[in-house]
Design a protein around this nucleic acid. Structure first.
Lengths: 195, 195
DNA sequence: GGGATGACAGAGATTGAAATCTGTCATCAC
DNA sequence: GTGATGACAGATTTCAATCTCTGTCATCCC
């Protein structure tokens, strides 16, 4: 029976499975153990608490959902073009997931929201990518040189919040959402531009 | 007893009172009637439903909370300065209320959110005020002339959402909130400016 | 007649007893 | 010794019985 020594990875897989099926409100550690065919005590050898397990699932999901972004941030196109592409990719990925499977998206949004730490770190990672693009734009003379890149990255991230914060998921399918997104990004790029 | 013929205004006053004391989850029409010393059937002579009563309370509150804004929008200062002042007044009013009495603020946020219609109309009113400022800025040559004022108003409103949408109330007391607000507004004004 | 009432049906909320879950740990199996 | 188990205490959730609320309307009162 114990042919394979249960891995953390398997537990995460099972936990995702249970969350997908039962949703964040009903998923229990006992359910996860049942899927794996072990006792729930075993799950507690790998994770100190249910919250830690859910946080790990959230981290995995966030990383996977935004796997394409770093490549865009360090791409070969001009910084202004890259900034637009990066924000489009972020909005696009969120929007696609929210429309494809709203229930699953809601589940993961709950996980992310409850795992404060994980979410904060994820956001810091995203803002750091934005900061790289902005810094290169400043070096190239495409963007105005006043203002530190990380602060500007935070500002751009905040100003585009409506297009990546899950609380706004319902408006992403509104008729004007894409037009509004493009307009906000356009205005921010104008604001960033050197004159 | 029936010296005064019960007015809609009195009912709204009583409803606010009950909402303040019991919160949005517990406040009932029977409570409101009790405060007024009438039967709850009487309340239904003035409002077709509990939802309509709550919507009327929400409208009153939103109008009162933002009573100072129209004067700023039509003020005598330069449009760019007025735009900044107007956004500061909006953020400031929200922030003050949220910090002064978080519970009451949460109560009214619930009312506003559940009264879709009322909230949408209120937002349209606010955006129309912003549009007036922007249109004057375009006429004066302070703002770039491309883009229609109402669309630009919507874009500015959306980009500053983090500083007026009640879902973000918890971050308004963060150490950098005011700095971030000023930076977002600064970037947007740069984007709006004629070159 | 205009305005208020309170009894009523159906919908929705409350409550507390029973069931389930979380997290621990002494024990077991290899 | 390493890793898994399952019994357990305390916390949390469920569920069904009960109670309260919403919205209507026939009736009442000035």
């Amino acid at each position: 029976m114990a042919e394979t020594p249960l891995t953390t990875e398997q537990i995460l897989e099972a936990a995702e499975d249970v969350l997908r099926r039962f949703g964040p409100a009903k998923a229990t550690v006992v359910d996860v153990a049942r899927v794996l065919g072990v006792s729930h005590g075993t799950v507690y050898r790998h994770f100190p608490s249910k919250a830690a397990l859910r946080a790990a699932v959230a981290r995995r999901w966030l990383d996977r959902a935004h796997a394409a972004l770093p490549a865009i941030a360090t791409g070969s196109q001009s910084p202004d073009r890259r900034l637009r592409l990066w924000l489009e990719a972020l909005y696009g990925a969120k929007k696609r997931k929210a429309l494809d499977d709203p229930e699953l998206f809601a589940t993961y949004s709950v996980l992310a929201t409850e795992s404060h730490e994980v979410l904060d770190e994820h956001i810091r990672t995203l803002q750091a990518q934005l900061a790289v693009i902005i810094a290169e734009g400043q070096d190239d003379g495409i963007f105005a040189r006043d203002g530190d890149p990380l602060t500007l990255a935070q500002i751009v991230f905040q100003a585009t919040g409506r297009f990546h914060d899950p609380v706004y998921a319902p408006v992403w399918s509104a008729p004007n959402a894409d037009r509004d997104f493009a307009a906000v990004v356009g205005l921010l790029l104008r604001g960033l531009a050197a004159r």
